[in-house]
Write a protein that binds this DNA or RNA. Structure first.
Lengths: 340, 340
DNA sequence: CACATCTTCCAAAGCGCTTTGGGTTGCTGT
DNA sequence: ACAGCAACCCAAAGCGCTTTGGAAGATGTG
């Protein structure tokens, strides 16, 4: 059943039926009701491919996930972010086009998207230092929003959390508890967020004239095993840390495993603070927070990012939107005074 | 730049340019090369919306994720599955349309998709008992593939792992080690996979005349905290289990936390077997498997599911494809003989 | 009553591609 | 020299919708 058939069955023109269905005013209320009823009865839904061609809008937003071959940076995070964004897209009538491409082909993927009109805008996640995607998308004229930021953070749209401030605060918290040998287990420092976190960490130490110890700093993809192996190595080495600051709950779980195997009790023998993205399947709050954590819901970020991007798509001349979210520090059972 | 302009610039008809670009034989090799070169030089990409309308194919596959409000069942699993499927889609030229809808609206979402022609087929995940989606999609005539299966598993396309066999084998393994009080921490038993796993568990016990103990069986969304709370409750209660069989690594991490807090060493004081989906950020293999586990890569399943679905879309009259994957049991450090 | 103004509807022209159903041209064999 | 046949190319008709630019009829105005 298409528009023409529906119109014929109603003895109306396709024009009128289209207008009735889309809420235009030039149609009598009674006619509109007739049309609506007939459409519903016939289980009619306008062909979305034809509509997209006719309107010139794709009503689709693209998320391009670069596949790196290693544990995808995106993986632990992107599911929740996607769900948050997807909720908003659905509510606003946008489709979500998810594109997995080898990292080397992301530029081609974006060029393709811009040229073939598959999407009205794209979401950019996990920017790296001087991320080429930002310049490229600007050049292509495709509306985009960056979750995170990089470079001077000027002239493009982004939403980010205050990573540096969060990690500075977390470090101060550990220092106040008397810890001096604090380890940092970070995400890959090609990513901007990880660099900022490290800087927050280092600044807090520097402010108290405490040297950052290279053997107590590590960074890589945020997997449980990386957290485990790193913590194990540090704990077994000379001058082991008394506290860990780690960039995700997943890493923290690895740290907990290493500590547990060595008979170290978290919050007593050893302290751990992590960044908690509030992943739905890793709730840190049941029975009081297990980990002391800087926290910020990645799903909420996804929702807000979607809202902003849709605003930008609807208002092409909108000035850049930049939003910085502050981060809570929640005290849990994984931290305590420095022993000894 | 559109096809007509490109054709004009080449002094050819749109027909010929279209054919040249799409690899049809009725065009001289020399002409084809000229067209290709011009297209590349002009950075031309055919408008995908127009192409979709003209061909009648969406070249898009839909994944509908029902939002339940609680920790989405899909969440821990679906990211890896999606990545696997997405790789194949990208390679085959299909787009992935991801649709998050409140659970109550999934039927409407499918009807919409079928009527408006947004997708050529859909992937169905995590089927429940007598899942209404199967009947609905059959009725709508939309090609679909179920990851998992339900009911009599007849007459529709699915790919599943041998859940029952896996859990029966895992239970036998624990029984052989001398364990008699074995706890089952399962996913929500509205899902078919969880029911099968429970049956495997129960059959193994029944085969040795060991009663299944209701207070040692629990099922809910597979979050870390559910694993933790349940294990804690069981361990603190009367007749605590000496072994746990759990439905995911995430649950197992919760169990490990509960055990750790009680000073119980895994593999010595207590045994744990889990099902390992080989999530990329929860690698169980680093330094030898931490958990004894039944394992099957969810990402590989995603890849294969995508392949099958594409086959079905390309061959509408293909007889049902049903694929059952066997599951390995990997022995790790989390199991040992029953103490005492 | 003539004229302007809404209100309500429609015909037709796109949107940018694919595809059907021919036409030309040049070559072969007789 | 001419029919027969490939090889190569094109005009035009869709695909199913939206949207422009009226037209017809109803209503108000001086």
């Amino acid at each position: 059943m298409n528009l023409k058939e529906l119109a014929d069955s109603l003895k109306l023109s396709p024009t009128t039926v289209s207008r009735a269905l889309n809420g235009y005013p030039e149609v009598r209320e009674e006619t509109r009701n007739r049309v609506m009823a007939a459409a519903k009865a016939a289980n009619y839904a306008p062909n979305i491919r034809a509509r997209r061609l006719a309107t010139g809008r794709a009503m689709t937003i693209g998320h391009v996930i670069p596949l790196t071959g290693r544990a995808e940076m995106v993986n632990p995070i992107f599911a929740d972010f996607l769900i948050g964004a997807g909720e908003v897209y659905a509510a606003e009538g946008y489709d979500l086009l998810l594109s997995m491409v080898p990292e080397t082909e992301t530029e081609a993927a974006f060029r393709q998207m811009a040229a073939n009109g598959a999407v009205d805008g794209v979401m950019v996640q996990a920017p790296q230092e001087n991320d080429p995607r930002i310049g490229l998308l600007t050049e292509l004229g495709l509306p985009f929003l960056v979750h995170g930021r990089t470079g001077d953070a000027q002239g493009y749209n982004w939403l980010d959390i205050a990573n540096m401030r969060a990690f500075r605060r977390a470090t101060d918290f550990l220092l106040d508890l008397g810890h001096r040998r604090i380890a940092l287990i970070n995400g890959q420092e090609t990513f901007d967020f990880a660099r900022r976190r490290r800087r927050g960490f280092e600044e807090a130490l520097a402010a108290r004239d405490i040297p950052a110890l290279p053997h107590l700093m590590a960074s890589d993809a945020m997997t449980e095993s990386f957290g485990y192996l790193t913590a194990a190595r540090m704990l077994d080495g000379p001058n082991p840390p008394t506290a860990f600051l780690v960039s995700s709950v997943i890493l923290a779980i690895g740290v907990r495993r290493a500590a547990g195997e060595r008979g170290l009790r978290m919050g007593r023998d050893i302290s751990v603070i992590c960044h908690d993205d509030e992943l739905s399947y890793l709730n840190n709050d049941v029975g009081g927070p297990a980990f002391t954590a800087t926290r910020s819901s990645i799903r909420a970020a996804g929702r807000r990012c979607a809202e902003i991007l849709i605003t930008l798509i609807r208002n092409p001349d909108h000035p850049p939107i930049q939003e910085l979210w502050d981060v809570d520090l929640t005290v849990g059972r994984s931290t305590g005074p420095c022993p000894g």
